[in-house]
């Protein structure tokens, strides 16, 4: 995240990190920017208000998989729909880690979790398809095992004007790996690497070849009017706020 921001060349005072609640979202407390650690699931709604008040700010919204797609789902689809210029970085470790390993809407079906001792029944979202369907104009996926690529994807998201989503798959060896005997951090990262394939290469593969694969890279990038800019452009009266 920090290296991606460094790539963008943004001025430190313009960068804001907003985060929700969960392991991922503690990040805002360690970063030397203006940082806002909100309530569970609501980071995007807080960030929307902040962006509308100060459209020049470069706002990164760090969320966990459950934080963003479960309790935060409603705010996520509406932030996408508005296409407001926020950079949503979803750290997807496929589990509620902080609370000890409950399954989330992005936990692979059949996984064991503290609240799914016999394996989860539910099919997870494909968060990028959800984002695109809801109106987001930039979507990319990276993994913790390809940090350089992830940096570039976050930097590209930041450069994109409109609502950008970067899903960053990461490992949770303690809560998710242990219960699903996926080994320690190294094994989990190695298996993540084996399953990863770039979006470009994936186009040459058919349905069942793609089964269980992690498609990394930019999934979509569309130019469309950005909410805050449109709002202020259509505000007729002279600026005195």
């Amino acid at each position: 995240m920090v290296r991606a921001i460094e790539r963008t060349g943004f001025d430190q005072k313009d960068v804001v990190i907003v985060s929700g609640i969960g392991c991922s979202s503690r990040a805002s407390g360690y970063l030397n920017f203006n940082t806002l650690h909100t309530t569970h699931g609501r980071a995007l709604a807080f960030a929307t208000g902040l962006k509308m008040a100060r459209p020049e700010l470069k706002i990164f919204v760090i969320m966990g998989d459950g934080d963003c797609s479960a309790i935060g789902g409603n705010h996520f689809i509406h932030a996408c729909r508005r296409n407001i210029d926020l950079n949503a970085v979803i750290i997807n470790n496929q589990i509620y880690g902080m609370t000890g390993g409950q399954y989330s809407p992005l936990t692979p079906q059949g996984s064991k979790a503290s609240t799914a001792p016999r394996g989860t029944l539910e099919r997870p979202f494909d968060i990028l398809k959800l984002a695109r369907g809801a109106g987001a104009t930039f979507g990319a996926r990276g993994t913790a095992v390809q940090p350089r690529q992830l940096e570039q994807l976050i930097a590209r998201a930041a450069a994109h004007k409109g609502f950008s989503v970067v899903e960053s798959l990461s490992q949770c060896p303690v809560a998710y790996g242990r219960r699903n005997n996926l080994g320690g951090p190294v094994e989990m990262l190695k298996s993540m690497k084996e399953k990863s394939i770039s979006v470009e290469k994936a186009t040459a593969m058919d349905e069942n070849e793609l089964e269980g694969k992690i498609l990394t890279g930019v999934h979509f990038s569309i130019e469309a009017p950005e909410y805050a800019e449109e709002y202020y452009r259509t505000v007729t009266a002279e600026e005195n706020h």
């Binding site: 709604a45 929307t48 208000g49 962006k51 008040a53 100060r54 409603n74 509406h78 709002y231 505000v235």
Partner: peptide, 29 residues
């Protein structure tokens, strides 16, 4: 509000409305 450079947001629910108000306040409005 728009006539005086202010911002009106109809949010997706009251939870988001409260959150947006806090975000805007942190932004200085």
């Amino acid at each position: 509000l728009p006539d005086i450079g202010g911002v009106f947001m109809q949010m997706e629910d009251e939870i988001a409305s409260m959150a947006a108000v806090i975000g805007a306040s942190i932004g200085g409005m």
